[in-house]
């Protein structure tokens, strides 16, 4: 399926009006970064989803290997003490 005449794939990240971070919205095809941002605007913000767009060519994203999820993530399962839930907060600290 990988046709060399096909435009590269881009991953799109959108920040919503109220949001602090850009969230992955999906992917699309575009010839370059300019077109990728415009396509993202047309495809992913037409229902007021956001006010800022990041695009990155999909090939630049490196992902962890699902086959390694056991060794990567399972060891954290029994370390609940890493959550800050065991501290008693003084009354005076209101907004935590």
């Amino acid at each position: 399926m990988n046709n060399k005449n096909e435009w590269p794939l881009w991953e799109v990240f959108i920040r919503s009006k109220a949001g602090l971070d850009h969230k992955h919205a999906g992917s699309l095809h575009a010839a370059d970064e300019k077109m990728a941002i415009e396509n993202a605007r047309d495809v992913y913000t037409r229902r007021q989803e956001g006010v800022s767009i990041w695009v990155v060519e999909s090939k630049h994203i490196h992902a962890s290997d699902p086959d390694e999820s056991g060794s990567l993530y399972d060891p954290a399962n029994d370390k609940i003490y890493r959550h800050p839930t065991f501290y008693n907060l003084p009354e005076e600290v209101k907004y935590m």
């Binding site: 435009w7 699309l28 095809h29 575009a30 415009e38 396509n39 047309d42 495809v43 037409r46």
Partner: peptide, 11 residues
Amino acid sequence: PILEQDIALTN
């Protein structure tokens, strides 16, 4: 010609 431009023109 491609989905993305189809949507762009329709917008």
